[in-house]
Every structure is written in structure tokens, then in C-alpha cells.
Design a protein around this nucleic acid. Structure first.
Length: 152
DNA sequence: CTATATAAAGTGC
DNA sequence: GCACTTTATATAG
């Protein structure tokens, strides 16, 4: 897990198996990114992320520095209201954003989510309840959902 | 599963 | 800004 922060808060959470791959992705997103050993405030952020990955699913209360279009920010804020252990469909999210037919746009915005587990895009499924896709791999999505269901 | 309808983002100009 | 392409969908057959 790689956590990137700015002065304002967490800007990105990357999931992967190799540190090198994560660093490469980070640099791809932020050209001026620097890798430094986890300082005190960063350790807190990472601990919260790890808790989420571990299935605790609680609100970490971290300051997020989300950068995206207005549409994306609205969606990410909405995703934060999804209770752990439950899932919502892309269509339902679209409806809440006043776009009843914009399910695909919701999915696209989810795919652009920069902060992995902190914005629980893994709780978003198809209207028929089946899993659709996940930016960091469908297996991760399945695992996260299984843990959260186990908690609830 | 395949085909179509559909809305929004990404890209190139 | 505009047209075209792509997409983690939804629905009908």
C-alpha cells in the first residue's frame, strides 16, 4: 500500500504488490512526487488505510485532498456515505446525483478515484448485484466485500 | 451471451 | 468548443 499526501491531505492511495510499481504509478500521477520514509502524520494515514483494507470499514476521518471534476468530487463524497457491509448499484448512485441514466458515468468516475479504500468504490456493484470491475483488480474488490460482510 | 440505448469523460484538433 | 472514441452499465432478446 502506498499513501501520498499533500499539505491539505491525502491525495492518493495506491494498491499493489510491488513497491517499485506503486512508486512508478505515483510519479505518473504526480510528476513532482517525492518518496520519503513514513513520517508521523503519514503513519496515521497509512494505519487508517490498512484498517480499511483489513475490513474494519470505519470512517478514518482523514483529510482528503481530492482533485477531480465537480462530478467526480460529488460522487466520491457520496461514496463516503455508504455503510460498510452494504453495496449500492451504479444506477442508484447515478440517481442520487440526479442522473438516473448516468450509471456509466458513475462507473467512469469511480475508476478515476485516486484514494482506493478511503473512498469505498469497492462497495459499488451492478444493478443485478453482480460485481462489475475494480480499478485495482476484481480479486481485491471481492476480498474487501467479503471482509466487510463478515464484519456486519 | 449478443446487440442496442445511453450518459459522461478522455482525447485530438 | 466540438466531434469521435471509450467505458467498472442497463435492458431486451
Amino acid at each position: 500500500v502506498l499513501v501520498a499526501t499533500s499539505d491539505r491531505g491525502v491525495v492518493a492511495v495506491l494498491l499493489g504488490d510491488a513497491d517499485a510499481a506503486l512508486r512508478a504509478e505515483l510519479v505518473a500521477r504526480f510528476a513532482r512526487a517525492d518518496c520519503m520514509p513514513a513520517a508521523a502524520p503519514l503513519r496515521r494515514a497509512m494505519a487508517a488505510v490498512v484498517r480499511c483494507v483489513d475490513g474494519q470499514g470505519r470512517d478514518p476521518g482523514l483529510p482528503l485532498d481530492l482533485r477531480g471534476t465537480a462530478f467526480q468530487q460529488r460522487l466520491w463524497a457520496l461514496l463516503g456515505t455508504i455503510p460498510a457491509g452494504t453495496t449500492v448499484s451504479y444506477q442508484d448512485l447515478a440517481t442520487r446525483l440526479s442522473m438516473p441514466a448516468g450509471a456509466r458515468a458513475v462507473a467512469a468516475a469511480c475508476a478515476a478515484n485516486p484514494v482506493a479504500v478511503l473512498v469505498p468504490c469497492h462497495r459499488v456493484v451492478r444493478a443485478d448485484g453482480g460485481l462489475a470491475g475494480y480499478r485495482w483488480g476484481l480479486d481485491r474488490k471481492r476480498a474487501l466485500l467479503a471482509r466487510e460482510r463478515g464484519q456486519g
